[in-house]
């Protein structure tokens, strides 16, 4: 505290809090935005707990097919579950885009779902000429 004369007292703050408030606001905005994007893009699943193939340089995901534990198939989180026939059309459209290979299509399947639905999806992929498939796993 700085005392100036006997009649008036000047109080000067010891620590200037301005930069800290800036950082705190930045953090808040970051967490708000990150939470929003994560909720929109991600379907919550229990993926199989496997190491995977540890590939470097992941290729661009043109199409992500999610298979939930109750057997329903979700491609766009905002649209909800779709049927096998819709998957057939969606895969057909994706494959027709130039440069799209099996590497650009990923299947995220819940580990507790039955293989029946997965097998149907894979038969559709094979029907559209895809020779391999990407199955997502969660690093243990």
């Amino acid at each position: 505290m700085v005392f100036k004369g006997s009649n008036s007292r000047v109080i000067i703050p010891i620590v200037d809090m301005t930069p800290m408030i800036d950082i705190v606001f930045l953090l808040i905005i970051f967490f708000m935005v990150a939470a929003q994007f994560a909720q929109q893009a991600h379907v919550n699943l229990d993926l199989p707990n496997e190491v995977g193939e540890q590939k470097e340089g992941k290729t661009k995901n043109t199409l992500v097919i999610n298979i939930l534990d109750n057997g329903s198939i979700v491609v766009d989180n905002s649209q909800g579950a779709i049927s096998i026939e819709d998957i057939d059309d969606i895969v057909g459209e994706a494959v027709n885009i130039e440069g799209v290979l099996w590497k650009n299509i990923t299947i995220r399947a819940d580990e507790n779902a039955q293989t029946g639905v997965l097998n149907e999806v894979l038969v559709i992929l094979s029907k559209h000429g895809l020779s391999a498939t990407n199955i997502a796993t969660e690093s243990p």
């Binding site: 967490f31 990150a34 939470a35 994560a38 991600h42 993926l47 496997e50 190491v51 995977g52 193939e53 540890q54 590939k55 992941k58 099996w102 590497k103 990923t106 995220r108 894979l122 992929l125 094979s126 895809l130 020779s131 391999a132 498939t133 990407n134 199955i135 997502a136 796993t137 969660e138 690093s139």
Partner: peptide, 15 residues
């Protein structure tokens, strides 16, 4: 309330 999703990897068998 932020939930960080675990990292994902791939298995790529032939089909």
């Amino acid at each position: 309330t932020t939930v960080f999703t675990p990292s994902e990897d791939m298995l790529s068998p032939a089909l």
